[in-house]
Amino acid sequence: MVGKVRIVTDSTADIPAEIRERLGISMVPLKVIFGEETYLDAVTIDNERFYEKLAQSTVLPTTSQPSPLEFSEVYERLLAEDADSPIISIHLSAALSGTYQSAVIAHSMLEAESDITIIDSQSASYGFGMRVVKAAEMAQAGETKERIIEEIKQLQRDTQLYFLVDSLEYLQKGGRIGKASALIGSILNIKPILSLDQDGIVHAVDKVRGSKKAMTRIVELLGQTFGNEPVSVTMAWTQRNATAEELSELIKSRFNVQAMDWTTVGTVIGTHTGPGTSAVFMHRL
């Protein structure tokens, strides 16, 4: 008899620890490297400590994907607990990281045949974290693997996300934009509105001058997708900031918001976007 579906993800889903624990989500951490110091994201360094170090560091930290061995250890543990129960493993966009590929290799390394479905979310942060949470909730309710996969694919189609960075410095340091573009953007107070395309690649949807215009533009873009439909919203920030709070108020005043939650953009995504980043994840109900 097939048992309850088990859910695996990686730390870039930015799911709060208490939710992971309550729903039984297994998490494989990425690594954040400050010089000679290596930390396991959401395990040996938390968001608060990370952003303090990021603000103080003169060198941009780097990030590293989990190895196939780290994934295979998680899969083997779950299979040892119940070899007949399926596993769904949902991960950061393959266009942004080799994390998904490590999971695929880990699956191929397992000796016995195993029911493991590995999914490229084509998203980042809580853009796919919300899908992981939904999958885990359905698994706890006893839903089948097929039904869970169908539901999270629908949730992917029904979700839109936008990131707003406070500074172009970290995008420039990470090679996402050129030094000249970052300098001109800073002088002119240009705010790129970032999202992920259908292939999971980061791109600038628009560029406007100033945070207030950027927030107004995000609301306009969301309005084109959702209109007055009932929606659920998750707001995210690297650190508490007025921009995210003001954006949340604009969204509540404009949309038919049935639920609004908050989470923190984790260390790996924060390495590339910097402190002061705000994000909105909206999906139709």
Rank of each mutant, 00 (worst) to 15 (best):
Q198N: 13
S181G: 06
L161G: 13
I187D: 10
G174P: 09
I184L: 15
R147A: 15
I201V: 15
E137F: 03
E169G: 07
E169S: 10
L171D: 12
L171H: 12
I149N: 09
S186M: 06
D197N: 15
T159M: 08
L188N: 03
H203K: 12
K145L: 14
I184C: 08
E151G: 00
G200T: 01
K153T: 08
L155E: 04
Q156I: 05
E151C: 00
D166C: 01
Q154D: 14
V205K: 15
D197Y: 09
L161N: 05
S195R: 09
S181W: 02
V165Y: 00
K191T: 15
K207E: 12
R157N: 04
R147P: 02
E151L: 00
E169A: 13
K173C: 04
G175H: 13
R147N: 14
Q172A: 12
L161M: 14
E151P: 00
I190C: 10
S167P: 11
E151I: 00
F163S: 10
I201P: 03
E169C: 06
R157D: 05
S186A: 13
Q160L: 12
G175M: 14
Q156D: 11
K207H: 11
H203Q: 07
D166W: 01
E151F: 00
R147D: 14
Q198C: 07
G200L: 01
A182V: 08
D166F: 02
D206C: 01
G200A: 00
Q156C: 04
I148L: 10
